[in-house]
Design a protein around this nucleic acid. Structure first.
Lengths: 333, 333
DNA sequence: CACGGGAAGTTTATCGGTAAAACGCGGAGC
DNA sequence: GCTCCGCGTTTTACCGATAAACTTCCCGTG
């Protein structure tokens, strides 16, 4: 491995001067700078990040921990986070947390161990951190969970989104609107927030929200969505509209409804949440709540970078803007 | 920050002993080991990875560079790579290369700069490395490109897969089988390999492979697939079967065919490649070539780990096994 | 009873950078 | 002619861990 020392010898200067050139610091004369750059080129030198980090305490890497790299909506987000971070001179390391509290806590620990300068954590399960030592680590919550305001939080428009979707279905003429969701309605989380938005929209319009119109799945997979179609079809509730908690569930549901011979939007109208890429190309294409992922990514990066610079400033909560994208699955009868 | 020195003082031993405990090295008595562990717990100590790396030259991180974290098939792979690497005591850092040669070369540079111990590179565009300095960096090519055997390579069953898909369509009764692809047929790459498999299957059965049955798209997006449906429908070629170069293209195509009122599999049968999750839930569900992603991930990790240990051993090429998953889109008439 | 050998710990010398202080030197000011 | 200044560069002193060499001390053996 070629070190600064080698470059310095080659250029006939001290290694401190090489360091100054590498980091574009002032106080190096033009001829010397050129000599050093030439020596760097000739020798194929690269800085040793470990050595730099050891001395400076900064790695220039931001972690992005997501529940599951397979999840469709994550890719969108990740790619914007990477782009935004690069603009600000940071690298992004993507970590998988597994969609459970233990894995998410581990992600924080790993992030500190690997010395990421900060972490953007998209948690779905974790609702508090044990380690008081983590209290001032630059951490930005992205998505569902917030930790009671202890960290910066970029939130999804959960209530607002399902409210809009539900209202839209009602406007299209639906009268018996079900909600299909997974996970727990206990506590304050993504699912309970989305459920609340749905309830509020129904209440405003004086529509039913019988408990039977709530279908709770084991998880939020496509397969669960597909299975939900059977439960809907067999329920005898006369459901004519469905709000699905995510597009993944909605896409599975569309598939399941097709299997049961129910026509969308003829018999049932469907709306999803996230606007994942396949939503636009499904048959029928899926009406969905489209949060502004680019905005969320940019905000999260901005917040984490700001917090790296100033670990103690007060935290804030920011809700992403969204659009309701109306497509075939909710077309008027 | 609490250092080994602090822990050592607290436990009344030298910091070398602390190091030995932290790394589970032999030669520490049970009582001392317990004292040290207790001191670590009490002080909240964590190793400083930079310091360790600086001295040892190893980071314990494997890079995984993919063209585009948004691409559907990547998530699958990534999540298996992460799991397999963890089993072997490595972390994985996911990097985005952008689907172009410059970005892919950068990914190699970044990987070295960030001192990943090795890199799994899923390249689509790059076909040689400029830097001779990179010649012995532990690098495993995953997917399409190989660099003329200069690196270990875990390959997709490109020819074998489209051969099987094409043969299957023919067996289902298709006589005018088109192929829809994107990118360049020049050189040896994923597209040309898949095209060759298609040609071979047609030739074996004495079916047409007129150049017009080849539809080349600008890229391999869903939108391009959708647009291809128009070209197919307007071609007047009587196409009754389509092999799509990827599931993403195939899903767009299904959507486009629906727009044109063409029934799948009634009027046209369709097969894709990759078996991404939405393929099983599309309407109609998509027949597709399913490479064994878990096998590929495990192989790639095994190879990179082995090469980290022995940078000079001869390289190998390994083709992933696959299954043809037959679904509705190619059902017999 | 002297001696070889291993187990348990400690010391020493680095790994490759960087902040901060020290240095050398030519020119401005009096 | 002497002091002072500031620019460009070098020196010094770490950052926190670890491999390798070294010290103790204890035990078994001939």
């Amino acid at each position: 491995m070629v070190t600064m020392e080698d470059v310095a010898r080659l250029a006939g200067v001290s290694k401190m001067t090489v360091s100054n050139v590498v980091n574009n610091r002032a106080g190096v004369s033009e001829p010397v700078r050129r000599r050093v750059l030439e020596a760097i080129r000739r020798s194929g030198y690269r800085v040793n990040v470990s050595a730099r980090t050891l001395k400076s305490g900064r790695t220039g890497v931001i972690g992005l921990a997501v529940p599951d790299v397979e999840a469709a909506y994550f890719g969108h987000l990740a790619s914007h986070v990477i782009a935004e971070a690069r603009r600000r001179g940071f690298h992004v390391a993507i970590e998988e947390s597994g969609a459970n509290a233990g894995g998410e806590a581990d992600a924080v620990t790993r992030s500190r161990t690997l010395q990421f300068d900060g972490l953007i954590l998209s948690a779905v399960a974790l609702d508090r951190l044990e380690e008081p030592a983590d209290a001032h680590y630059p951490l930005v919550m992205l998505g569902e969970q917030d930790f009671g305001g202890r960290f910066d939080h970029v939130a999804m428009p959960n209530e607002e989104g399902t409210h809009a979707a539900t209202a839209h279905l009602a406007d299209q003429g639906c009268r018996r609107i079900a909600i299909v969701t997974g996970g727990s309605l206990e506590g304050v989380n993504m699912v309970s927030r989305r459920y609340r938005g749905y309830r509020a929209a129904l209440a405003e319009r004086g529509l039913d929200a019988d408990p039977p119109l709530l279908f709770v799945l084991d998880d939020m997979s496509m397969e669960a969505g597909r299975a939900a179609a059977d439960r809907l079809a067999d329920s005898g509730l006369g459901v004519d509209g469905v709000v699905a908690v995510t597009d993944t569930v909605a896409l599975g549901l569309l598939r399941g409804l097709a299997d049961r011979g129910l026509r969308v939007p003829g018999d049932v109208r469907v709306a999803g949440f996230d606007d994942v890429p396949p939503a636009a190309y499904a048959v029928p294409s899926l009406t969905t709540v489209a949060p502004d992922h680019r905005w969320m990514a940019a905000k999260a990066v901005e917040l984490v970078v700001r917090r790296i610079a100033a670990p103690l400033r007060p935290t804030g909560r920011y809700v992403a803007p969204f659009q309701l994208v109306v497509r075939e699955s909710s077309a008027a009868g």
